[in-house]
Design a protein around this nucleic acid. Structure first.
Length: 662
RNA sequence: GCUGCCGUAGCUCAGUGGUAGAGCGCGUCAUUGGUAAUGACGAGGUCGGGAGUUCAAUCCUCCCCGGCAGCACCA
């Protein structure tokens, strides 16, 4: 809030600068005037002022003693303002080029900004060039941003009269306590919380409009679809260029592109959202799964396998039929009609089966077999469970969002007193695994009690605390996501970013006291009575499909040796080395390595290039010399040189390196 | 699902109201080479599907399917 403090006129105030120096000014002094009083060059460079920690307009009169710091363009804080101002400039440009377009909201975002417009005919990519050109004109003009405070009625009337129904709605919804602030830039004005830089000129030239997309008004799919224009903006052209290059580089890592190039998997229309794993991709899968099994076994998990297809009665009990059905694939339990050209089903189906969207209810069924004692707890029940979810078409995305996926799922049945130790053990297991798999860009969120919830405050305190302590014990930094927990319990979310900067949830830990109740799971405690176990849902990779996708991008396709589908290629230089190459290849296979033999009639340059492009980590080149000496010329991916060494030694070294992290 | 853009050979893409072209890949032949593309020749496409306009549609219009980006959803 840029509050204008009431103060006696003519009084002087003490301004504390970041270096601790205290200067005295008359009340109502502005950030800009302070800058001018220090130096002319500073006054020129400064774009905003931080007053008591809050970023404000340079023109805002300061009425009380304050700590201030002047913000220059070079600072990170400036970026956000450049982007915000760019959004305003874009809105002005759009309204001048396309009269009748309504403006709505336009914030700065990571790497740029957007503005949502309402217009009968949505914008297309072709409009971007013209809008950008107009923006440059506005920036060039350099109209000052000036701030006004209007009365609510005046503002609503003004925007309503202009036909700006969205702005009027925004104003109506502002809390009574808030000033209605209007920022002018030349002829144009907008409702805005601010702050802004001194003029449109300060936006600079390092911006670019990137894409157009639809976006719902107020993020609500029941409301109007607006047109959103995205742009990026930076301090200078170099930063802009770097960013654009970075986007290009990221696109090269896209797992969908690499998956095709490396022959890992494909997808096709007839099975949208499901993956055809090719041999090479499935090799990665199997290696990863085998690694996970070892980790799970060591952490005292048991592994199970549960049905794909279960009766709707079962899903009614679990609650999925009521709450999750729209995401489920439902199959009528009827023998199909075989008459040619006839209906698929002769009779209206009365009974239905559904493909499982989750593994938890099935795990509870296994838990319920026989009578469990408190001595059996905790039971850690794992499954590489294949689930189907009928995701919206627009949500599907390569391996990241699919309709059929396999979770490294597990449910821990335990008593309340075991939540803490189980959560700690889980976080430790997870961070060990993420480390092994090469993940550093990990974001952890602790989602706490939402407004609508069940359970007592004490149980929430206990559960949230348990998760917090688990994170701390595992040394994982985290952010709070207040109110984002499930209605039945708090949860941890482990987010990993993909190449293009999108964030995906992989691991998760959720506390669920609800499902055991619904499905009537119990154990016998010391008191001889039946008690409800608690359930922890947890996954580390999340979905194996998604995780492999993220790994491909994380490593830009250059997977560590133990996960590489082809670990070594033996490539010959001349035909005379064919027999020896075959021998080397056999030795590699015998050493347990995934090898290929390339005796094609091609030049060595060609072979080296091809296997490098295919991201094969090790290349054993053999010619006549190597055959005679029983050596190989080892060339590693990414290296320009090669090392000639005895074949046995080279294989032993490679085999050693190819051992999984566990 | 919503908005916009897109759909041409296995891949990346060019192109035109008169039923198509390049590079890579693939095949054959020649070449036997020393660490990121040897050369020649050849095969390969109902131009996503359907309907309409037209003497004529890959091209224009409409519908459908799919992909991409964002939104919504999801975790």
């Amino acid at each position: 809030m840029q509050e204008v403090h009431a103060a006696a006129p003519g009084r002087s105030i003490a301004i504390t600068l970041p270096d601790g120096a205290v200067r005295t000014y008359g009340t109502g002094i502005t950030g800009l005037e302070i800058a001018e009083s220090i130096s002319k060059s500073l006054a020129k460079a400064v774009i905003a002022v931080r007053i008591n920690g809050e970023i404000c307009d340079l023109s805002l009169p300061i009425e009380r003693d304050a700590r201030i710091s002047l913000i220059k363009r070079e600072e990170d804080a400036a970026l956000e303002m450049i982007r915000h101002d760019a959004a305003h400039v874009m809105a002005e440009a759009v309204q001048s080029l396309f009269p009748g377009t309504q403006v709505t909201i336009g914030p700065s975002i990571e790497n740029g900004f957007y503005y949502d417009f309402a217009r009968n005919e949505p914008f297309s990519t072709e409009d971007l060039a013209a809008i950008e050109k107009e923006m440059r004109k506005i920036v060039e003009k350099g109209a000052p941003f000036t701030r006004e405070v209007w009365s609510r009625e005046q503002a609503i009337k003004f925007f309503t009269d202009k036909g700006e129904m969205y702005k009027a709605e925004l104003i109506r919804d502002l809390p009574e306590s808030e000033d209605i602030k209007i920022y002018r830039q030349g002829e144009w004005l907008d409702l805005c919380r601010g702050p802004h830089m001194p003029s449109t000129k300060h936006v600079g030239t390092a911006f670019k409009l990137l894409k157009v997309a639809g976006a719902y008004w107020r993020g609500d799919s029941n409301r109007a679809m607006l047109t959103r224009i995205y742009g990026t903006a930076w301090r200078n052209d170099k930063e802009l260029q770097d960013y654009l290059t970075q986007i290009e580089e990221a696109e090269k890592r896209d797992h969908r592109k690499l998956g095709r190039e490396m022959n890992l998997f494909h997808m096709q229309d007839e099975a949208q959202g499901s993956v055809f794993w090719h041999e090479k991709g499935y090799t990665i899968w199997l290696a990863l799964e085998a690694y996970m099994r070892r980790r799970l076994r060591d952490a005292d998990y048991i592994e199970v396998k549960t049905p794909q297809l279960m009766d709707s009665r079962f899903w009614e009990q679990s609650g999925h039929w009521g709450k999750y059905r729209e995401n489920m694939f439902v199959v009528p339990d009827v023998v199909p009609n075989t008459e040619e050209g006839g209906k698929v089903f002769k009779e209206e189906p009365k009974h239905f089966l559904a493909l499982k969207p989750m593994n938890c209810p099935a795990h509870v069924q296994i838990f319920k077999q026989g009578i469990k004692s408190y001595r059996d707890l905790p039971i850690r029940m794992a499954e590489f469970g294949c689930c189907h979810r009928n995701e919206a078409h627009g949500a599907l995305h390569g391996l990241m969002r699919v309709r059929q996926f396999t979770q490294d799922d597990a449910h821990i049945f335990c008593r309340e007193s075991q939540i803490k130790s189980e959560s700690i053990a889980f976080c430790e297991l997870l961070s060990k695994i993420y480390r092994d798999l090469g993940f550093e860009d990990l974001k952890v969120k602790l989602a706490t009690r939402p407004e609508k919830r069940v359970g007592t405050e004490e149980s929430w305190d206990y559960a949230e605390n348990a998760l917090k302590e688990a994170l701390e014990a595992a040394g994982l930094p985290y952010e709070l996501a207040p109110g984002d927990g499930a209605f039945y319990g708090p949860k941890l979310e482990f987010h990993i970013r993909d190449a293009i900067g999108r964030s995906w949830t992989c691991g998760t830990l959720q506390l669920d006291p609800n499902l055991p109740e619904r499905l009537d799971a119990s154990y016998i405690a010391e008191d001889g009575q039946r008690h409800r176990p608690l359930m922890l849902h947890r996954a580390i990779l999340g979905s194996i499909e998604r995780f492999i996708g993220i790994m491909i991008e994380n490593y830009a396709g250059k997977l560590p040796l133990w996960l590489s589908p082809v670990q070594c290629v033996v490539a010959t230089i001349t035909e005379s080395a064919d027999d020896y190459a075959q021998e080397v290849y056999d030795m590699l296979r015998k050493a347990g390595l995934r090898a290929e033999l390339d005796v094609r009639n091609e030049k060595i340059n060609y072979k080296v290039r091809e296997h490098s492009v295919a991201k094969v980590p090790a290349l054993f080149v053999v010619g006549a010399r190597e055959g005679t000496d029983r050596t190989v010329a080892v060339r590693r991916l990414g290296s320009q040189d090669q090392a000639v060494m005895p074949v046995a030694e080279a294989i032993a070294a490679l085999a050693e390196e190819a051992k999984p992290p566990y």
